[in-house]
Amino acid sequence: MYSDKVMEIFKTETGDSPKNAGILKNADASGQVGNARCGDIMKIYLKISDGVIIDAKFKTFGCVSAIASTSIACDMIKGKTIEEALSFENSDFVKALGGLPAVKIHCSVLAKEALEAAVADYRKKQAKLAGG
């Protein structure tokens, strides 16, 4: 059902030493999307310096593809500018995962939305800093 890449990421993130899963200490922003009814809640933490995402982590309540989608998103946005990160489509995440089952594509959409929510949180905080 799942690609080897999805399973490999899932095993790493749910194992004893996750790669991208967990809290990011001193994060500059975070964004959470999803709800318990559909079974997926995703949170992405960002550390940003000079407009570049220097670190990203996630926490996810959800299935195999939800965990893999948020993990691959964190991998792909690290080292990218905010604009570059936002330019990723959910299909880019799906491609990097070696595909997702049709009923699981929404997981990649949620990962993109979690990233957008984290960036919105960052911009709000920056505006507040500039304003204050």
């Binding site: 899932f10 095993k11 009814r37 079974g39 309540f61 299935c63 195999v64 593809s65 939800a66 699981k104």
Partner: peptide, 26 residues
């Protein structure tokens, strides 16, 4: 509480244990 059934099912399956879940994801 706090975790989703399909993830539990998949990890148990990797250990050779067959179960099922009522999760929407599955």
């Amino acid at each position: 509480q706090g975790i989703e059934g399909e993830s539990v099912l998949t990890l148990l399956d990797l250990d050779g244990i067959c179960v099922s879940t009522g999760s929407a994801c599955n």
